[in-house]
Design a protein around this nucleic acid. Structure first.
Lengths: 152, 152
DNA sequence: ACGGATCATTGAAAAAGTCAACGATTGTTT
DNA sequence: AAACAATCGTTGACTTTTTCAATGATCCGT
């Protein structure tokens, strides 16, 4: 790692036409964002994905693992690993599906909710700094546009 | 990734508070977008990343591999592989850096520009359908917000 | 000219992603 | 009701991607 990398780079390549390619913009923002988010969540033993699973588990929606896989764009086997980890640490537990006994619904424990609250605060602070270049209104706009792009 | 369905799902989980988490929105849009983009680029033997490299090579900016790595958020060794592939196929070539002989600048060949033009058209069409839920104005807004978030 | 830093490159190790198969259960067809 | 195909979570194998340290060549500051 470089000694001090607090410098803000304004790469000359951003000028290229590709600087307007949505796919690249998403990839880049996602890449740098993930790095910072994972760093912020490391204090709580979480990463972006385990945090997402924990959040859904705390939501009261009682998601099944299949729903988690679909919603998070993950392979079902990846959800198994994530839930395994969270369960071993006592943050969530698997409960039998209600109308489908094959499915398992993921619910949070009290400890899970405790950790989640702390982690969420840290993550929000982190995202605020990531989007510091945007005004509050633009911040809201961005969220709205991303949501609309995803599910109309 | 998820199964092969291109169906539009409106998951009930989207209602959760996490549906407003910027990190997740970016991850999700990036995931589904990459899938479609790579599919669209496959006709030309390209993927998102090799297309990005090719685009920069065609830009006239004469980027070094280090600049490509920084701009694309990749490890330098990954750039080596990408350029190797494009070079073997005669789409780009490595030229000696002008003021720095350690660096190699990546420039496109005529064939590279030919392929790139075709691929770009296909990709733009693909991205248009991805963001079909957005109006033309919103589309422009989204690009602007992403760019501002990235480099002010 | 010397020493430390940076560039592209290599190769190895670790992590993540993909995929097919399985038992258990569900829904559907006959 | 019995047979059948489909779905859920899980496992394990396999491939791809990412990460990282080391290297020779070159640059920069002193």
């Amino acid at each position: 790692m470089g000694p001090q990398s607090t410098e803000v780079e304004t790469p000359r390549l951003a000028a290229a036409k590709i600087g307007s390619d949505v796919g690249l913009l998403l990839a880049k923002l996602h890449a740098t964002g993930s790095l910072l988010n994972n760093k912020a969540l490391a204090d709580y033993g979480l990463r972006e994905r385990s945090f997402s699973v924990l959040t859904l588990a705390c939501s009261g929606l009682e998601p099944t693992q299949r729903e988690l896989a679909d919603f998070l764009s993950l392979d079902p086997s990846q959800v198994v690993s994530l839930v395994d980890d969270l369960e071993h640490r006592g943050l969530v537990k698997r409960a039998q599906g209600k109308q489908d006994r094959r499915a398992k619904i993921i619910v949070s424990t009290a400890e899970g909710r405790r950790i989640h609250n702390k982690a969420r605060a840290g993550l929000e602070e982190c995202e605020r700094t990531q989007l510091a270049a945007l005004s509050e209104e633009e911040n809201v706009q961005l969220r709205a546009l991303l949501k609309k792009a995803l599910w109309g």
